[in-house]
Amino acid sequence: MEILLVIIIGLLYAAGIYMMLRRSLVKLIIGLILLGNGANLLIFLLGKIVKGKPPIIEETEKMLGELYADPVPQALILTAIVISFGLQAFAIILIKRAYKVVKTDDLDEMNATDEDL
């Protein structure tokens, strides 16, 4: 199963970078999101995936049992997801705003810093 996940990670990275290399701003954001997902999955995988053992302490116990999913990568990924949402939301609104002003989402036409803004 890990092998399949590894392939998916590679695919996500490749797709993300390919999209980031496009000239459209929207595609840039999509690429960023895909890349972020790939990174999350990478962290998740490296924390050793475990099936059906969430890091939640049993009602009767005081600590986790012997075999459990690693809580540290999960906490990291959770933070990453939330932060990337902040970034995405801001970026999406920024694209919209930029388009309103310069009437394009082509990065190549946004090169000049102070042309009839």
Binding site: I33, F44, I49, V50, K51, G52, K53, P54, P55, I56, Y68, A69, Q74, I77, L78, I81, V82, S84, F85, Q88, A89, I92
Partner: peptide
């Protein structure tokens, strides 16, 4: 599937919002 219910919930809501 791999024991991360919190992540699943977060990802679900964030993705919907995005």
């Amino acid at each position: 599937f791999y024991s991360a219910p919190d992540l699943a919930m977060t990802q679900f809501s964030i993705d919907t919002l995005t």
